[in-house]
């Protein structure tokens, strides 16, 4: 499908979806949102570009990327387990660090946030994998 309108629209709406995805990722844990929802939205943004530019037929460009996303996400989840393990607490205990900033109250970072980032990338990879395998031509 080579539609010029869809290609121009995808160029801008893709970034809008990614912005909302990152917003949902950062807002999660206390408000509606989180890594899973953000990952679904970011994955759909990449799928959107694929539909517009007919990229699902280009196998060699896109085939390995879902695996990279899933592997990176699972590795981030694994990294988020380590601090609670080395602190001598039960594994997967949430540990938070407050980084002071010149303005505002400071940024709260913690292992749940790292876990959310891992879920984000893993869900992007799974979404891409589903859509790629559904749009492959049957042999």
């Amino acid at each position: 499908m080579n539609s010029v309108i869809l290609q121009i629209a995808a160029k801008y709406l893709k970034w809008l979806l990614i912005v909302f995805a990152v917003l949902a990722l950062l807002r999660g844990h206390n408000n509606p949102g989180g890594g899973f929802i953000g990952g679904l939205m970011a994955g759909l943004a990449i799928v959107y570009r694929g539909f517009a530019y007919n990229a699902f037929q280009v196998k060699e460009e896109l085939q390995d990327r879902p695996g990279y996303y899933i592997g990176g996400g699972l590795f981030a989840i694994f990294l988020s387990f380590l601090p609670s393990l080395f602190a001598g607490k039960t594994i997967m205990t949430g540990l938070w660090v407050k980084i002071p900033t010149p303005v505002g109250e400071g940024i709260k970072l913690g292992t749940p946030f790292l876990f959310d980032i891992g879920v984000f990338f893993a869900v992007i990879g799974v979404t891409l994998l589903f859509v790629f395998s559904l749009t492959q031509k049957q042999h």
Partner: peptide
């Protein structure tokens, strides 16, 4: 949420049309 639903439902329509 409505903004996100509108973007994603558009993707669904495009996918079924493809």
């Amino acid at each position: 949420i409505p903004v996100i639903i509108s973007l994603i439902s558009f993707i669904g329509t495009v996918a079924v049309s493809t």
